[in-house]
Nucleic acid binder design. Structure first.
Length: 104
DNA sequence: GGAATGACACTAA
DNA sequence: GTTAGTGCCATTC
């Protein structure tokens, strides 16, 4: 907390860098922050105070799963589809995660 | 100050 | 390839 930006604040900052049509895994964000706070990242999104400013819907699990969303998983899937992310119509999983993943 | 929780990840069977 | 169990981090009660 004494830091300039809290951990969750840094997560939002990275999320803001994600362009439309790209997705990132919680592990990538945590790794970018210099650690493996996968769960901490997710917690930050759970506390996401600005769903408009932070595209938390562009964050998916490392295995390609959509994971969850504050407004509802189905809403997240719909948003990803609208963004242009290719998802599996059977399980709603990200297709070619490595190719659609945004490299920081 | 300590314990419990959670929008996850990884390894093993 | 799938399922189960365990570990990690930061935040919150």
């Amino acid at each position: 907390m004494d830091s300039n930006k809290s951990f969750n604040q840094q997560c939002y900052d990275l999320l803001r860098q994600i362009p439309k049509g790209k997705v990132v895994t919680y592990a990538d964000i945590a790794h970018q922050l210099g650690g493996k706070a996968y769960q901490a990242v997710g917690n930050a999104m759970a506390s996401n105070p600005d769903v408009i400013v932070v595209p938390c819907h562009r964050v998916v699990n490392s295995n390609g799963a959509i994971g969850k969303y504050a407004l509802g998983t189905d809403k997240k899937i719909a948003l990803l589809k609208e963004e242009g992310i290719l998802l599996n119509a059977d399980n709603n999983k990200v297709v070619d995660l490595d190719k659609q993943r945004h490299n920081f």
